[in-house]
């Protein structure tokens, strides 16, 4: 058992290092050019956002429509810090601080509102994100109001993106594979039963919310320090919807589903970049069609794993035998 586990661990490690190395190589020989790098960045940021919202909505069952609000806190915090001190340590400090601030707001908002259920919570979180956006618009002397901040120094490169993305996904995955994570999942399944089985549901709901907000803060910081420019409207209702769509499209309660959907949506939106209205119309239609015909999303609550492929192989082998 022990040996098998570590073999699995090594396989994973190899896969992760390989992914990093190959992409880094492609970047250095400029096969992944600036244009593709922007897509790559969007993908990584989307993955962090989708996986962290999945923790809140897909695994803990708390319906949030305000994830972009947390993202904006991370983005503004980091941007303001590195605009003043454009160094890598300050970028890291800004990211950490942005994430912590987002988590703090998540805590303050979550504590009272997480008593609400379903649609009500969705609307409350939507309202919260709108309030944050309006505050950023109005704190003119700090945030430059609706015009936003520009000329933010770029520190984000593939290495940082990779570290933050893989780190976030692994930490959340580990958490979900622990007793604490299972407590969250139990809340989604049946809150009253979970509470009666000794799970402090309020604490775990707030915890999921805070972890999710923290990660969204990281995503925001990465966004600010890659794309040079942020303004409050980037983090509006539509952005929150975008993130939720990734979670639902990939499958609520499936981390690999979220990753898949994050990649898919970033690619689609890059391909359709020059047709902005048609892109939105298509996006809307795809959304409606998927919800009607495959409401559980691409993967449902399942995960893609290496063993899945070997099982698939066995399945086909069995088919042959049967013939």
């Amino acid at each position: 058992m022990k040996g098998k586990l570590s073999a699995q661990f090594i396989r994973r490690l190899v896969l992760i290092v390989l992914t990093y190395g190959v992409v880094q190589l492609l970047i250095s020989v400029n096969i992944i050019n600036d244009y593709l790098q922007a897509t790559l960045t969007t993908i990584c940021i989307n993955i962090i956002l989708a996986v962290s919202l999945n923790l809140i909505t897909g695994f803990t069952g708390q319906f949030s429509l305000g994830h972009a609000g947390f993202m904006s806190i991370g983005a503004y915090t980091c941007a303001l810090i590195i605009l003043k001190n454009p160094t890598i340590p300050h970028f890291l400090l800004g990211t950490l601080l942005g994430a912590l601030l987002a988590a703090l707001v998540g805590f303050l908002v979550g504590l009272p509102t997480l008593r609400l259920r379903g649609d009500y919570l969705a609307i409350a979180t939507l309202g919260m994100a709108e309030i944050i956006r309006i505050l950023f618009i109005n704190m003119d002397n700090i945030t430059n109001g609706p015009r936003g901040l520009s000329g933010i120094p770029r520190f984000v490169n593939w290495t940082w993106l990779f570290i933050f993305t893989v780190g976030t996904v692994l930490l959340i995955r580990n958490f979900l594979n622990s007793s604490h994570g299972r407590a969250c999942i139990a809340i989604r399944e049946d809150e009253i039963a979970a509470e009666t089985m000794g799970i402090n549901t309020t604490w775990y709901k707030v915890l999921a919310f805070v972890i999710g907000a923290f990660c969204a803060g990281i995503a925001g910081a990465l966004y600010a320090s890659y794309f040079y420019f942020i303004k409050p409207d980037i983090f509006g209702f539509l952005k929150s919807v975008d993130i939720l769509v990734m979670v639902v499209l990939g499958g609520m309660g499936s981390i690999s589903g979220s990753i898949l959907a994050a990649i898919l949506l970033a690619v689609i939106s890059t391909l359709l970049q020059s047709f902005s209205e048609i892109r939105m119309i298509l996006y809307a239609l795809i959304l409606i069609v998927i919800m009607i015909f495959r409401p559980q999303g691409l993967l449902g609550s399942k995960e893609i794993s290496l063993s899945m492929f070997s099982r698939l192989g066995k399945f086909f082998a069995f088919e042959k035998e049967a013939k």
């Binding site: 407590a183 399944e189 049946d190 039963a193 979970a194 089985m197």
Partner: peptide, 22 residues
């Protein structure tokens, strides 16, 4: 009121949460 979409194993395992020491 079981956790319907979880496995039999997880249903019981989740209830051990209060004694978990990490």
């Amino acid at each position: 009121r079981l956790f319907k979409d979880l496995t039999v194993f997880d249903n019981v395992r989740i209830a051990m949460h209060k004694n978990v020491q990490y």
